[in-house]
Design a protein around this nucleic acid. Structure first.
Lengths: 523, 523
DNA sequence: CTGCACACA
DNA sequence: TACTTGTGTGCAG
DNA sequence: CCACAAAGC
DNA sequence: TACTGCTTTGTGG
């Protein structure tokens, strides 16, 4: 079942279709009757709109893979040797950036939400339980996992797999409280630790190990013990020379275990060599599938062996990522400032073609989003509307406003405009008076909307710099922020880096150069 | 004077500063006292705002060259050998695209505007004469050129060089009339000939030569004779296997001469080898300077020799261009459709800080532009406002509208908005009430505007595809064009390619796929 | 897309 | 007195 | 820059 | 009955 599926290979049984394979995922599922689980999932999903959409997506992916194969086949011998030299060269350069001087620890709480719920209600102990509802579950405890129940699985399927499964609704307050307790512990080992989510964090333990004269394994043991004492929860840890590897390592002896990869190039290379690429953070279902079926790559080692192909067919940065995975190279720095870049709110509801209802939903979400933004004192310029149809097709539409958007009115104004532009779909297709066409399309379930997201990007992928200009009072206020343009950074200007409304000074003041003005205001 | 100027070389005399070197340009200036001409130009220009701006630009260019030299110096041996293989590879690929099967002829009328004016007023014959005015001259006849008078030279400088110079104002009606006469002739040799301007054209004479069993040289002779009989004007011609080379060849025996480069690889390589790069169309003053001072490249041959460096330090497409120049490879096809991409109108006037006057100028230009657009039945979405300050600094600001812009009101509306955003420059720099600051800046001549251009781009740099949708009548009208988005082309959609308002069908109609709609309307 | 530099007639 | 006008391209952000 | 897809938790 | 909600990053136009 885990064998390489190739496009020309044996036809898998229907329930082995890749998109239903929850059991392929990262954490261990030892002792589970995987085939039975797959079959139940398949039979429960089959025929649903969701399933049909997954099949469509799978077909699109297959096509994409077919294209890559074709491109690969088109490469001449000269191309191949050329890209091989490119890859070899890049591998050398990446190797030169390898940093083995830092020790990173990745902590991952075991079945976090489920464990917290069990703490507050010990009667759950030993029984299969999941946090979430019938539509979606967030986590399952280990008892439930033995039935094939997993995070990100809809609840009604989980119940098919395990009829006695107990459902506990999510209660983020509780998880945040316990998360805070764990972070208090983490802080003691690395005051600048990086929280990845409520239940995961990266710690640079280089200094702690040195100061306290302990091995990193001992530190990890102590940290896990300490977390357990403070919270009553268990966690797993991975230690490695960089964050990428540490994350992989923390998964190895889960739950309540740890794994240390020593800061040694040989050890890293051995570790990485036969590692399935899917274990690597950043390589998800789609990328795994592409690499396997278009390039025959399943392990990290093969990333290096097929480096030439990767450089030929992927973008520079993607190829770079793949090659560094093959080398077991990852980030070792602690980024200075990590400011939030976007904020969003979305809600799924049952399918409808009632426009009034849709606008009402939109207004509700705008309200929620606005409240969240107010809480953080944030505002942004790019507003994205995300729509999901009854057939699970996802669309997004965005606008960028000249002014910053903060109020729920503004949010609603722009979001409505975007929604309006999408709405008379069927009318547009069939002509204004063709109600027959309208209803026949609706009855096909293609166009009703049942999910709306409003997403405000606080800044684009590029840095935006602002020239400061002094008004009568020499004050920089939110109104001088209006003229948003992105410029090449030069030190001829007084620049501010603006993320959301948070402003931090970037370069020194050079008053006599102010007159080389490049920006305009819209005030 | 023509020797390599390097940054560390001997200091040239002031009037040899590169930006004043009109005599460096392409067409022959045999028997001219170049040094004297240079000195007069220098002395006439020196101290002017224009001159100062040229010096500033020169400084910027020097800096750019210095940067390239630094980058070049930073290249490691490994880099060098790497890029050498890249270059070698690319040279092979380009060589494989060499097409020697076509014969191109480039015709260039001799001193066209001047010759036409002499036809209509024979008393000008034999006297130094220029077409244009005191600010700028378009062409000079050969008598005037002996004094150093050149196209694109301001008239007042030309008069310094040749006090008896006769100025004749430009009269495009006349030139267009004669241009039409020449084109009637060109048509007989290549019905698809490509007009490059009123006085230049490219002709693919492969078929004519074959059909009439004449050599290309004979055809060129005949064509030139025919043009002369029809118009009374002389022209020069170049014949070569591609347009790039034909253009160079037409310049060799100017005026009233021709030059044939045979369709033979060796002949081409010999021809190209010692050719100064500046003779190549597309390599202007700046590129010449960069290649010479940062890479020591002066001839086309050296493009190949330094191919590795060029690939290392220029973009893919630029390096490709340079290498094909080194190989003497150029375009040999006759492009199917060549539609206009933008239309603009601009006027230079004397410096002012009177905003009312500026808006008046803007309105005038909007009117002119609109008239030109009406004539061609064109409209566009991107409007660019170009400004030139009293110190010759050029700025441009653009907006893209959701709707197509055609009316002079709309043009003016958007252009005014852009202008307004630029206008209170000094106020913004100095604070609203700081009139002192305002005037001191104005008196420095930095901010008065005296040139306005409105430019409408009819389409972006990327192709824009439109999904067709059928309204009740199944008609595609200008209103369905409103939802402008740029999409990747897929054959799942009914696509139209839209340039301006001109619509041409692009793919076949696939009615049952219409429902996979991706566009929205803003109607 | 936007801003700008470059090129050519 | 006084250094254009119209169009196209490429690059970086 | 902007829109969108992919990924992770 | 019933397949989330929130955020970041990369890619191409």
């Amino acid at each position: 079942m885990e064998k390489n599926e190739t496009l020309s290979g044996d036809k898998p049984r229907p329930w082995q279709s890749y998109h239903t394979v929850y059991t392929n995922a990262k954490a261990g599922m030892e002792g589970v009757d995987k085939e039975k689980v797959q079959r139940i999932i398949y039979e429960t999903s089959k025929g649903s709109k969701y399933f049909e959409n997954e099949e469509k997506k799978e077909a699109v992916l297959r096509q994409k893979i077919e294209n890559m194969r074709a491109q690969r086949a088109k490469l001449s011998a000269a191309d191949l040797s050329h890209y091989q030299t490119v890859a070899d060269r890049r591998i050398l350069e990446l190797e030169a950036t390898r940093d083995l001087s830092r020790i990173w620890l990745h902590v991952d709480m075991d079945a976090f939400y489920a464990a917290v719920e069990t703490l507050s209600n010990p009667s759950l102990k030993g029984k299969p339980m999941a946090v979430g509802g019938m539509s979606m579950i967030s986590t399952a405890n280990y008892e439930a996992r033995r039935f094939g129940v997993r995070a990100a699985m809809p609840g009604f399927i989980a119940r098919k797999l395990c009829p006695e499964l107990i459902f506990v609704p999510t209660d983020f307050k509780k998880y945040t409280y316990y998360s805070e307790l764990t972070r208090k512990v983490f802080e003691k080992y690395d005051p600048n630790f990086m929280a990845a989510s409520l239940d995961e964090a990266h710690l640079d333990i280089t200094e702690v190990c040195k100061e306290r004269g302990m091995s990193c394994g001992e530190i990890a043991e102590e940290l896990r013990k300490c977390v357990n004492e403070e919270t009553g929860l268990t966690c797993s840890a991975g230690v490695a020379p960089n964050r990428l590897l540490a994350k992989v390592c923390s998964d190895i002896n889960k739950p309540n275990g740890q794994f240390v990869l020593t800061n040694d190039r040989m050890a890293v290379m051995t570790f990485i060599s036969s590692l399935p690429i899917r274990k690597i953070g950043g390589i998800g279902k789609v990328t795994e599938h592409i690499l396997r079926d278009a390039f025959g790559i399943s392990t990290c080692e093969e990333m290096l062996q097929k480096g030439g192909l990767l450089c030929a067919l992927f973008s520079h940065s993607t190829a770079d990522f793949f090659l560094s995975v093959g080398l077991g190279i990852g980030k070792t720095d602690t980024p200075q400032v990590r400011s939030r870049k976007s904020i969003s709110s979305e809600r799924t509801f049952s399918a409808t073609d009632d426009e009034t209802l849709l606008y009402q939903k939109l207004a509700d979400i705008a309200e929620m989003l606005c409240a969240d933004m107010k809480k953080g004192g944030l505002c942004g310029r790019t507003l994205t509307l995300k729509l999901k149809t009854a057939s699970f097709e996802v669309r997004s539409r965005a606008v960028t406003s000249e002014k910053y958007i903060c109020s729920s009115e503004d949010i609603l104004k722009y979001a409505s405009k975007l929604l309006k532009a999408e709405l008379p779909i069927s009318l547009r297709l069939m002509g204004k008076n063709s109600h027959y066409g309208l209803y026949s399309l609706l009855s096909e379930g293609e166009n009703e909307l049942f999910c709306v997201l409003i997403h405000v990007f606080l800044s684009g992928s590029f840095l935006t710099y602002w020239e400061m200009y002094l008004d009568g009072e020499g004050i920089l206020n939110e109104h001088n922020l209006m003229p948003c343009r992105t410029y090449k950074m030069t030190n001829h200007f007084i620049c501010f880096q603006a993320y959301a409304c948070l402003i931090s000074m970037k370069t020194r003041l050079v008053p006599h150069l102010i007159q080389h003005k490049k920006l305009s205001t819209t005030s």
